[in-house]
């Protein structure tokens, strides 16, 4: 089934920050976008070319691929407001 929101979460290795970002993103999406989202977690450690091609300069970083345009939020996503604003989630749901 096609989802409204497609997120890609870039991480680098199994570190605390990565786990925290995954958890935070899941929680926020469950709360605001239930059943309307998909998250792909990509570990760049084994994917050098992807890091180069995507131009990712820090991790963790979440990228909204759908709907266009592409927007990004960098960090462990611990600040919910910034995530909602940065990924354009809240504006739509207000």
């Amino acid at each position: 089934m096609k989802k409204d929101y497609l997120f890609r979460l870039y991480t680098l290795g199994k570190v605390e920050k990565s786990a925290l970002a995954v958890a935070n993103l899941n929680r926020i999406c469950e709360k605001y976008l239930k059943n309307r989202y998909q998250i792909d977690v990509i570990d760049l450690e084994n994917n050098t070319q992807m890091a180069e091609d995507s131009g990712i300069w820090a991790t963790p970083m979440v990228e909204r691929r759908q709907p266009a345009p592409i927007v990004r939020v960098v960090g462990d996503l611990s600040n919910e407001d910034t995530v909602l604003y940065g990924l354009g989630i809240k504006n739509i749901n207000v």
């Binding site: 920050k17 925290l20 970002a21 935070n24 131009g55 820090a58 991790t59 963790p60 970083m61 990228e63 592409i70 927007v71 990004r72 939020v73 960098v74 960090g75 462990d76 996503l77 611990s78 600040n79 919910e80 910034t82 995530v83 604003y85 940065g86």
Partner: peptide, 9 residues
């Protein structure tokens, strides 16, 4: 690409 920061990275 527009970017915001939320937490540590």
């Amino acid at each position: 690409v527009p970017v915001l920061q939320s937490g540590e990275f």
